[in-house]
């Protein structure tokens, strides 16, 4: 079943992430992908995440496709201008990639090529518009194309950004320019997330709640301090601390599973996007404990 059809079927949709490595040794990544096969509705392939140079998302999407997984091509605007982006989208389309996640992308300053010229010729809202245009048989300049794309396109949103209002205004722009689904930044406060969903429900889009696996109390504190738009409540940090060093990861898995179960049971949103950040092999365990497998 395609990612789009999974939403249409009304099931609780689950996506996770595969991060292409730096270098050509893809054994470990393929092993993770193999573990996720048959369990997810789709899998994101990140695009030089954190502005660290790695294998391109499109190549890995194609490999996953050949393995029988349903990839979501993450596309950022950091490294390609409007010609490059459109050309890559057409390329992805003929390779059979059906889903695309449009993002602006972390600044090169975050990565390992800090001297790079940032492109940002267009940004997330405009890239969504471009996808829409290609889906309708025209490039962004309105030139007729021989054959159109048929992408199912999505975007990201940070429901806990402060101030949140400009973020929600941008969310609306993304809906208007064609986003069909959203994957959110990590959420840990389900009650607060409900407020966001109440707003988002006014629009005909699917919402996947971002679930980032907490691997330790230190990681939670780090994210609170340094990662914009992520707030891990103190009671969750205490819960992981109480589990001790040995039990921390297991406590993190338990929290993730509990949140997913609540989101599903209370029908809060359409699904979840699980980001295990370096612990991709734990995704099946999270899903199992959430009652999804």
């Amino acid at each position: 079943m395609s990612f789009k059809n999974a939403f249409d079927s009304g099931k609780f949709v689950v996506t996770a992430e595969v991060g292409p490595p730096k270098g050509t040794d893809i054994k470990e990544m393929l092993h993770h992908a193999e573990m996720l096969k048959g369990k997810l509705d789709a899998v994101n392939v990140t695009d030089n995440q954190s502005a660290v140079m790695r294998i391109c998302s499109m190549a890995i999407c194609k490999l996953l496709l050949d393995m029988g997984l349903e990839p979501i091509l993450q596309m950022t605007c950091r490294d390609r201008n409007r010609i490059g982006l459109q050309s890559d989208l057409l390329g992805a389309s003929v390779l059979g990639i059906k889903n695309v996640l449009c993002m602006t992308g972390d600044h090169p300053n975050a990565g390992d090529h800090k001297e790079a010229k940032p492109v940002y010729d267009v940004e997330s809202v405009q890239l969504l518009g471009i996808v829409n245009s290609l889906n309708n048989g025209k490039d962004m300049m309105g030139n007729e194309m021989k054959g159109s794309t048929n992408f199912f396109q999505g975007a990201v949103v940070t429901p806990e950004a402060n101030p949140v209002e400009p973020q929600l205004m941008k969310f609306e722009k993304k809906v208007k320019t064609g986003a069909k689904f959203f994957q959110t930044q990590a959420i840990y406060d389900i009650e607060k997330f409900k407020e966001f969903v109440k707003f988002a429900r006014k629009f005909p889009v699917k919402i996947l709640a971002g679930i980032v696996l907490l691997k330790s109390a230190g990681m939670a504190n780090y994210m609170n301090k340094f990662v914009p738009g992520i707030r891990v409540p103190q009671d969750l940090i205490d819960e992981i601390k109480a589990a001790g060093k040995e039990g921390a990861l297991d406590a993190g898995i338990k929290i993730a599973a509990r949140h997913i179960k609540q989101l599903k049971d209370e029908k809060i949103c359409d699904g979840v996007h699980i980001m295990a950040i370096g612990a991709e092999d734990k995704v099946p365990a999270i899903m199992e404990r959430a009652g999804l497998l």
């Binding site: 950091r78 602006t104 972390d106 600044h107 300053n109 975050a110 940032p118 940002y120 940004e123 997330s124 809202v125 405009q126 990201v156 949103v157 940070t158 950004a161 402060n162 101030p163 400009p166 973020q167 205004m169 941008k170 722009k173 930044q185 914009p228 738009g229």
Partner: peptide, 21 residues
Amino acid sequence: CPKGLLNGPCGGTNEGKCEVS
């Protein structure tokens, strides 16, 4: 804006500060 964004803040906006610095 270090990214020159035209349609609002990115996800890196943080209590009124920029993710870049």
